[in-house]
Design a protein around this nucleic acid. Structure first.
Lengths: 196, 196
DNA sequence: TTCTAACTTAGACACGTGTCCAACCAATTG
DNA sequence: CAATTGGTTGGACACGTGTCTAAGTTAGAA
């Protein structure tokens, strides 16, 4: 597990040929479709490779594991969907809620991917590790930005934990991804109460 | 996956012979040891069965999956470690913190089991499902009890999500299980601020 | 056009999960 | 003591993961 190049994701990368980029792109696209169509339970690396018209061996050249592929897919989707601008919100609370709402509907729009990544982030693969850190940092940064000068460590931490918890609970099926928005609105208000 | 008796865990159960109980107990004990000694990555159902002096086939008679075994193990450990009595705390905040501290050290005392269960709770096995609901309810009930009359839905929800998030983050390795106690103290205080 | 370095591939492998079933004990029960 | 019932077992099976290697391909350089 994990030793190939696989430093994708900061893709303009020395030593990666156009052909390789093409291959990786095809794999990612295939993974996304597969995830949507058959779900992460049924999807296999072999299926993805086939859909991308690539051999399984090649797929494993670029992705150290299924979890790595999931994480990469999620990371890309996440950066493709940046948070709404903080200035557009009437209050700090509303701004943070805009972030959680945005993330919630982001997840709700791709429940299979969300479920897949939640599990995969628990993997101890070094390739997953890197992405996990980036993803975590991205959440923190969105909350910090929305909080602006109010971005107290404790508050950011509380929000991050609550959001992680929401992700976990939805992954477990205790909440639907669609319910996350409303639920987090209340939680955000509760956490920020008397502060904004 | 999943169709056997396996309604363990409410064990005084009609139709389960003493011999079966003995078998299950041995499997659970073996699972606990195995988890502690080799970790959930390396542990296999076969190893557990061997350690319990039972055939793999028998192990699968009582546990529908590895995840089911993990969940059952965690559930039992959890109920064996009830929350500290609410009356022993000076304030509501302190009471809730006592609960999170207690849970944190509970997890820290068995990090491998904690990591294992976090992953396994994401499984869609019906056998896991039941345990997941029970475990979730147990957390909620501990927080509600500590909050007493202050047990507002939003607050309980915020606490539960934050705790789930802590579990997830520790499972990911973003936090150590040992850090959870301190981290949650701050988060609890933040959530309850101006309320207690 | 031919050489060469980079990329891809088939296919086999070791290993874990979870399923199945016929054979096989072991304790009752008659 | 002999049936019968209920629990256990070996062993094979289908399937997925991830690894490896020797043999293709493909482009671009000479």
């Amino acid at each position: 597990m994990s030793n190939q190049l696989s430093a994708l994701s900061q893709l303009p990368r020395r030593g990666v040929s156009a052909r390789q980029v093409e291959t990786v792109e095809r794999l990612l696209a295939a993974g996304e479709v597969e995830l949507r169509e058959v779900g992460h339970e049924a999807m296999t690396m072999r299926t993805v490779a086939k859909r991308a018209d690539v051999s399984p061996a090649t797929a494993y050249t670029y992705f150290a594991s299924k979890n790595h592929l999931f994480a990469e897919l999620f990371w890309r989707a996440l950066v493709d969907n940046p948070a709404p601008a903080a200035e557009d919100s009437a209050s700090v609370v509303a701004g943070v809620q805009a972030v959680t709402r945005h993330l919630s509907s982001f997840l709700a729009a791709r429940p299979e991917m969300a479920a897949a990544v939640t599990g995969s982030l628990l993997s101890h693969d070094p390739d997953v590790e890197r992405l996990r850190l980036r993803i975590g940092a991205e959440f923190v940064s969105r909350f910090s930005a929305a909080l602006g000068p109010l971005a107290d460590d404790a508050v950011v931490d509380a929000l991050t934990l609550a959001f992680s918890g929401a992700l976990l609970q939805a992954g477990m099926g205790l909440s639907t991804y669609d319910d996350l928005g409303d639920r987090l609105d209340v939680v955000v208000a509760t956490i920020l109460e008397g502060r904004a």
